[in-house]
Design a protein around this nucleic acid. Structure first.
Lengths: 123, 123
DNA sequence: GAGCTAAATCGAATATCGTCGATGATAGAT
DNA sequence: ATCTATCATCGACGATATTCGATTTAGCTC
């Protein structure tokens, strides 16, 4: 029934990824464009340097918000729709009703190995 | 159609409030207890100093997650259920479909004055 | 191979954040 | 009026985060 500090840290890190304006702009760009975009395209749209964009993409990729497909020297980044669909709400977070591994993350990037802890469907 | 960096900053600040383990623990405590709690009670439950708890409560209060009622020398903090109900989802955030003032905030704490920008009801 | 392009990584500067201990403010009790 | 309890605020510190410019890595073309 009680939430451990470790669990709280994991969940907080998911929301922290959404806690930076540049990352919000990047996600908005990818989500509204509805397609994969190169780093250069993103740099053009968001007003920060290339290395900064790469850095934020890595953070978003670690959490599982975005997916990347390398093709030649260019990286194609796109939204992970599955993450968008089942990302926890604030209510679920504060009620402590969350798995400790990201359910949208197929590759087990999360700390603990998941494999479909709970197949949520909302909306 | 485009999201400004200012809007992105505002929205990011809301999610950043959920991006710290101690704040998640505090919110979970208040939400699951279902009642108002004093600072001392919260300090007992969350393993950090009193000044730290006060600091986090201020951050949560600024965003509108928690409400306070002073009575004598003690402050009674409780969840703002309205905020919990209509806090934006990740999908709404990245699609840029959010008001620039917090809809759960009655007192107009948010940057821009709101007055019911959109009466959402979810769940 | 030489040159070019795209993006990741590195190193450093700066800013922000989380935490603590100490102090200050306020209300109640003796 | 003095003491006590409760909490907010202040000042400082270390740890993180954000950003930039420079460098490196990798792929493509000639």
């Amino acid at each position: 029934m009680n939430v451990s500090r470790d669990d709280a840290s994991t969940w907080a890190s998911w929301f922290r990824a959404l806690g930076d304006p540049t990352r919000v702009l990047i996600l908005n760009l990818l989500a509204t464009s509805g397609r994969a975009m190169s780093v250069a395209e993103i740099v053009d749209a968001v007003d920060v340097g290339q290395s900064t964009v790469s850095h934020h993409l890595k953070i978003l990729g670690d959490v599982g918000f975005v997916l990347v497909h390398r093709e030649g020297t260019t990286s194609w980044w796109r939204m992970n729709e599955e993450c968008l669909d089942c990302f926890p709400t604030a209510a679920e977070l504060v009620m402590g009703r969350l798995p400790t591994a990201a359910p949208w993350d197929e590759s087990g990037r999360g700390s603990t190995l998941s494999k479909k802890t709970s197949a949520r469907s909302r909306r």
